[in-house]
Nucleic acid binder design. Structure first.
Lengths: 157, 157
DNA sequence: CACAATTAAGTTGTGCACAACTCAATCGCT
DNA sequence: AGCGATTGAGTTGTGCACAACTTAATTGTG
C-alpha cells in the first residue's frame, strides 16, 4: 500500500496544470524560442532554419530525408523551410543523380560564410540559461531518454 | 576548411547539434505533442486547447488575460483558440460587466462534463514517459528555473 | 473635467508542426 | 522482364506561436 508514499494518486491531482511535465517542457521550449529569435535576428534565420544550418555546417551536403531524421521533422515541414533558405541564398537544392527521388541540400558560399557569424550564438544562449555545463548536459541526457520513451510509446499506439 | 589549430574550447564545438540543449528540449516537447495528439483525439482537443481546459477546470471562469499569464500565451494565440473551443461548445466567452475590455472564458455544461473523460489522460501520458514521479518532479524544477532564467534574459535585451 | 497613456482583446501576416494526400522513382518478388 | 509495394519529396489544410498592429475601455494626471 506504500506505492506512492506522499502523493495521493488521484486522477484529479494529475489534472493540475503545474503538475504537467509537458507544460513545463513546452514553456521552456518557447522561452528558448524567444531568446533565439533575438540572437538569430542578425543572421536572418528562424530557429528551425538555424537547426538545418547546424546540420549542414556539421555534415555538409545532406539529403532532405536525412535532415528529417536528424531534426525529427518530416517533408511537410522541411520542404517549405528549405525553399525559404534557398530563397535567402544560403543553400541550393539539388536532385540526386543516383536516386532521382532524393534531393540534397547544399551550402552556397553565403551559407558557408554564415557559419562564422553564427559561431557566437551558442555562447550567448548558454549565458542566457544561467546554467553551468554540467547542469545542461544532465538535462540533455534526461530529455533524450524522455524523447526516446515517448517516441516508443507513440509508435506502439 | 582547415583552420582549427588548437584543442582549446572553440565556438565551433558549441555549434554541434547534439550539444544544443534547446534542440533536446524542442524534440522532447514535440514528442510529447505526438503522445498527447493520440490521447486527446477522443476528446476532440488539441494540446494547447487541453491546457486551457485544465486551467478552467482548476480555476473556473477565467479572464483571457489571466489564461495568457498562466499559459504564457498572448491574445494572438488565445483569441482564435478560444473561438474554436466556443465553436466546439465547450466554453462561452462573456464580456465582463465591471471592465468591458475584459472577456471571461466560462465552461459550458459540455465543457464541465469533459473533465471526467479527461481524467485518465495524465496517467496515460505518465505511463508513456516511463519516468517515475520523482524524476518528473526533478525535471520540472529544472525546467522552471530554466524558463525563468530565459525569460529574464529575453526581457533584458 | 479633459485627455494622453495604458490596458485587454482582437486582427493580420509569417513561419513552423503535422496529418493526409499525390506523384514519380526505385525496389522486391515472381 | 513485369508489376505491385515502398520510398522520398512535395502539396494542402488545420492549428499553434508570435510580432506588429488596431480598437475600445479604463486609468492617471494636470
Amino acid at each position: 500500500m506504500s506505492e506512492q508514499p506522499t502523493d495521493t494518486p488521484r486522477n484529479e491531482d494529475f489534472l493540475r496544470l503545474d503538475h504537467q511535465i509537458c507544460f513545463a517542457l513546452n514553456a521552456a521550449s518557447r522561452a528558448f524560442g524567444g531568446v533565439y529569435r533575438v540572437a538569430l535576428k542578425d543572421l536572418g534565420l528562424t530557429y528551425p532554419q538555424y537547426l538545418v544550418m547546424l546540420v549542414l555546417w556539421e555534415d555538409g551536403t545532406t539529403p532532405v530525408k536525412q535532415l528529417g531524421t536528424r531534426l525529427r521533422l518530416d517533408s511537410g515541414t522541411l520542404s517549405p523551410l528549405l525553399k525559404r533558405l534557398e530563397a535567402a541564398g544560403l543553400i541550393r537544392r539539388e536532385r540526386s543523380t543516383e536516386d532521382e527521388r532524393s534531393v540534397h541540400a547544399v551550402l552556397t558560399e553565403a551559407g558557408t560564410a554564415l557559419r562564422a557569424r553564427a559561431a557566437e550564438v551558442p555562447r550567448r544562449i548558454a549565458a542566457a540559461t544561467g546554467c553551468d555545463l554540467a547542469e545542461i548536459r544532465d538535462l540533455q541526457t534526461r530529455l533524450h531518454r524522455l524523447t526516446a520513451a515517448l517516441d516508443t510509446a507513440a509508435a506502439q499506439v
